Amino acid sequence: MTGPGREERLARAALTRLTEPGDETIGRWLRQMGPVGLVRGLTGKGSPPRGAREERLAGCRARAEVLDPVADLAAVARLGGRFLCPGDLEWPGQLDDLGDARPIGLWVRGSPGVRTWALRSVAVVGARACTGYGSHVAATLGAGLAERGWVVVSGAAYGVDGAAHRGALAADGATVAVLASGVDVPYPRGHTELLDRIAEQGLLLAELPPGGHPTRSRFVLRNRVIAALTRGTVVVEAEYRSGSLVTARRARELGRHTMGVPGPVTSGLSAGVHELLREGACLVSDADDVAELVGGMGELAPPRRGPVVARDLLDPEAAGVLEAVPARGGAQARAIAREAGTGRERALARLYELQALGFVERQGDLWQLAATASTSGTPKPPGRHGGVRRGGD
Rank of each mutant, 00 (worst) to 15 (best):
R12H: 09
R338D: 15
V36I: 02
A327E: 13
S267L: 13
V137M: 03
L179P: 11
D161S: 08
E339D: 03
L354P: 11
L169T: 10
G51T: 12
G232N: 08
T116E: 10
K380F: 14
F359S: 06
P188G: 00
S135I: 03
G132L: 04
R128T: 07
A123C: 15
L145I: 15
E7I: 01
W367M: 13
A324N: 03
G162A: 11
P48K: 05
R197V: 14
G330E: 13
G149R: 04
M297G: 15
R231A: 11
L221T: 05
D68W: 01
E339A: 15
T372V: 12
L57F: 02
E239L: 13
R224A: 08
A13R: 01
L357M: 15
E279Y: 03
G3L: 09
R31K: 06
R82Q: 09
V66G: 12
V176Y: 02
L30S: 06
G182R: 03
I336M: 04
L141N: 11
D315K: 11
G113V: 11
G232S: 07
A337V: 13
R102L: 05
T25I: 09
L348I: 08
P209G: 14
G22N: 04
G272W: 01
G99V: 04
H213F: 01
E279M: 10
H165L: 15
G387Y: 14
V234R: 09
P209V: 14
E279N: 07
L57Q: 11
T175A: 09
G190K: 02
R390Y: 12
E65P: 04
A333R: 07
A75S: 11
A77W: 05
A281D: 08
R241N: 12
